[in-house]
Nucleic acid binder design. Structure first.
Lengths: 102, 102
DNA sequence: CAGATAGTAAGCCATATAGCTTAATATTAC
DNA sequence: GTAATATTAAGCTATATGGCTTACTATCTG
């Protein structure tokens, strides 16, 4: 195996689709987007009824998938949506409109 | 099942995104599409190395999500992709290009 | 009819996921 | 420094998922 850094697309798809599989995580993305693209972890956690530690974990999943990034500002973490990453999904979907044999 | 189209969208998203979360299921859809839109259960199972019973289950998940339908033809089941259902995903993605406050 | 073929169903098991709770860490406020 | 605040980390548990294997059903062939 060649040396790292070369994330094959396949794995990326994997992370992204898995991340989008949970309703809470999709909601985080939507909320984030409609709130201007960035929110603190606390603000994000506040939209859910479940324990905020649970949200923390969802944020980690989203970040691993590249759908979010965060930045430390004092004692807060500001999460920012990475819209670009969502294009991966669009790309995948595009397969179904091209090169069709039918 | 010729009833209504009363399924709340939310649940539908849930089923579709969950179905797409597994690489084998995404692959089924792609293979099906690039093979002309329909294949028998056996042909689909043949593309995988895992037991075909496992594929059967994946097919069930995809069908529940509305991404496939099947039709009995003799002792074979012919699975057909429902491309239209994939538009749900596109619709969801579209949220991120509209009405932005930023 | 028997036997082969195409496929699903059901049950078992290991692992993953997503809640929870209880720390722990870091920063700001006093 | 101590306390409060913002947040993550770690560990527990229940449930879901996705493999497997072993039936079982239905259809076609002779």
């Amino acid at each position: 195996m060649a040396h790292a850094e070369r994330k094959p697309r396949v794995d990326t798809y994997e992370l992204v689709f898995a991340a989008l599989a949970h309703p809470a995580r999709r909601r985080v993305l939507l909320t984030l987007y409609f709130s201007g693209g960035s929110m603190t972890a606390g603000e994000i956690a506040a939209i859910f009824e479940h324990a905020w530690q649970t949200t923390t974990r969802h944020l980690r999943v989203l970040e691993r998938a590249g759908l979010l990034t965060h930045e430390k500002r004092g004692r807060m973490r500001i999460y920012r949506i990475q819209r670009k990453r969502l294009e991966l999904v669009r790309d995948w979907l595009a397969h179904f409109s091209r090169n069709a044999k039918h």
